[in-house]
Design a protein around this nucleic acid. Structure first.
Lengths: 206, 206
DNA sequence: ATAATATATGACACACTGTCACATGTCAAT
DNA sequence: ATTGACATGTGACAGTGTGTCATATATTAT
């Protein structure tokens, strides 16, 4: 997390700095992006930067997680919309992310995040689900999910299903980015994953 | 790939260099590892390094992929052993990787690979399956898989199943590493994933 | 007005990368 | 054995970056 000093800054200065950072992380992936470029664009001194942030990563993950927050909020609404059908809601959420990747700048930023991803980047993405599973929020969302669809209603398995879904969703974003799939192609691939997961891949007499 | 010059080196010199590299990549993840350290340990000059490799990544992925090759070879045997039961074979392969993570040095090396992974690292891992799906090898392995177990025998879906399985396997290795799970715990988690995938998570009357 | 605290600065030491002109080794042809 | 062509080895160097620190300036509280 950025230091308090950063949050004490005037809104204008803060925005300006974040914009410069976003520019740099759009230009280059985390490990290639340079603080030097960010402070040059933002017009602040090197020393100041270190008053605001621990280091480059600190700023980066602050930005990235902020971007992903929107998705988390969105998901609750989707569950309601689809009468608690987990998979249907997940499919629409994935569609939302794929659309976000259409904006050219946004695309490059996330592409940089996905292609040169670290564990922390993956965590940032999959934490969309954690929110729903770990804390108080769970009760709310847990209720939204219609268990009638599911084979198992055990909490433990439900949590595991979330983990699987998020791994597959993350993988789908990478697949799209790497192979340069269109949104439709990526969506088709994701739907196939979800369909196989729903039905199961083995015959039921085993 | 390393340059020809590297392969022209005497075996002794090559081994020595690879060992120095492995030491460095065990000490630090890719982005923190330094060529400077590698050449100091190996006792070669900076210029020589660039005669052998394009850059740090070139050497790194040569090492990593070599390590993973063994797993690819192993998998064919496992399919035969389990009478073509894809999931059973996959479970034993995952077990093999988890055991590899028991050796302390190996563990640190792979930990560095997993935690600060890039897309290319994930590719290296999941390419274990690509081998079986893309080229001539497919026919061999495709035959080994007992389709009687599966709901769908369409090639396209089989390929997709491989992709899902590899995404979940990769995710499992990260989960183990990050949460510091024991081999048994990790295996249990992976088996649950496989079991859910086999049976499907939705009731069949939908 | 003064002290205390918070913020800003840029020079600096240190580390690393990739390159290049030059040195040395190898080996086939004469 | 000598030559020349080609392969390999070298380390100084320019360029770029990071994180720190002594010092300067601003802000706030008393």
């Amino acid at each position: 997390m950025p230091k308090q000093t950063f949050f004490n800054l005037s809104e204008q200065k803060r925005k300006n700095l974040l914009e410069s950072a976003e520019m740099e992380f759009t230009r280059a992936p985390l490990f290639e992006a340079s603080i030097a470029n960010i402070i040059k664009t933002a017009g602040i001194s090197r020393g100041s930067f270190y008053q605001y942030f621990e280091d480059k990563d600190d700023l980066y993950f602050y930005l990235l997680e902020d971007k992903l927050k929107k998705g988390k909020i969105y998901f609750s609404g989707l569950l309601a919309k689809h009468q608690g059908d987990l998979i249907e809601a997940v499919i629409e959420l994935q569609n939302y992310f794929l659309l976000a990747l259409s904006d050219e700048e946004e695309k490059q930023f996330l592409k940089n995040a996905l292609l040169y991803t670290t564990h922390r980047v993956e965590s940032s993405f999959t934490s969309i689900w954690d929110t729903y599973l770990d804390n108080q929020e769970f009760k709310k969302v847990g209720k939204l999910i219609n268990r009638d669809y599911l084979n198992s209603t055990a909490e433990k398995e439900l949590l595991h299903i979330f983990k699987m879904v998020s791994a597959l969703a993350f993988n789908n974003l990478i697949e799209k980015t790497v192979k340069g799939l269109s949104d439709d192609e990526a969506m088709e691939s994701f739907k196939l994953s979800m369909s196989l997961l729903k039905q199961g891949i083995y015959k039921q007499n085993n």
